[in-house]
Design a protein around this nucleic acid. Structure first.
Length: 214
DNA sequence: GCATTAAAGAGAG
DNA sequence: CTCTCTTTAATGC
């Protein structure tokens, strides 16, 4: 997305609207805010989620470099359904007003095509997730989840598998894959004993052999 | 549900 | 800025 926009219209856009830099914990928008902007993440990471009536937070997903946020706006949504919060310092974001984004989509084909591609990828991901939630047990769901995590955020480590920086808790994971925190905790000790994964503190997860995840 | 431990925050030097 | 003490939050059973 970033690349698509960069060479042409995006360069013009940047002249008048420089990239905004955000600090950790800053909110881009809250649930229920009226929709004005579409966000393009140039760098860093953003957490998307919602709160229940007691105020517990639930993570829906993380959006990273090159990804688009708030694109429902382009399809007529008037209020954000989730909150979006920056989770890394110096996260850089390009903010496009909805009208401007629509203009771009109309006048500049590569942007429109990329939008469509993103949307269809999203549908595919959701179908897959639904499939997993419906037909696999907790252990397999967790393994699938770890696979996704590694694919999206993993970095090579000691020439053996990948390491992932975790910015979610076991409770978050539980909510994402539809199980209890207790089960997640239990499963992780199993997986660790089996040598499938290893924790470094609470923030880093090493997966020495991707094959072991099935 | 509760005890343990890790991470975040506050305060001092 | 960095070290250490205190508080808060996550984990493991």
């Amino acid at each position: 997305m970033y690349d698509i926009l960069c060479p042409y219209k995006y360069a013009d856009h940047l002249k008048t609207h420089p990239l905004e830099t955000y600090k950790k914990e800053e909110f881009l928008f809250m649930e229920g805010d009226s929709v004005r902007d579409v966000f393009l993440i140039a760098n860093g990471k953003v957490k998307v989620g919602y709160y229940d009536d007691v105020g517990n937070e639930y993570v829906r997903s993380f959006i990273g470099k090159g990804e688009l946020l708030g694109e429902m706006a382009l399809y007529g949504e008037t209020r954000y359904r989730d909150f979006a919060q920056v989770t890394q310092n110096n996260t850089q974001i390009c903010r496009l007003r909805v009208e401007r984004a629509l203009e771009l989509a109309r006048d500049y084909m590569p942007f429109a095509l990329t939008l469509n591609k993103r949307m269809s990828e999203r549908v595919q991901r959701m179908e897959r997730r639904l499939q997993i939630l419906l037909f696999k047990d907790a252990r397999q769901r967790l393994m699938e989840f770890i696979k996704d995590l590694v694919r999206d955020h993993g970095e090579p480590y000691r020439n053996q598998g990948k390491i992932v920086k975790l910015d979610i808790t076991q409770g978050d994971m539980a909510a994402l894959i539809g199980t209890s925190r207790k089960t997640i905790s239990l499963l992780f000790t199993d997986l660790e004993n089996e040598g499938v994964v290893k924790f470094y503190g609470r923030k880093e997860l090493w997966v020495p052999d991707l094959e072991k995840l099935g």
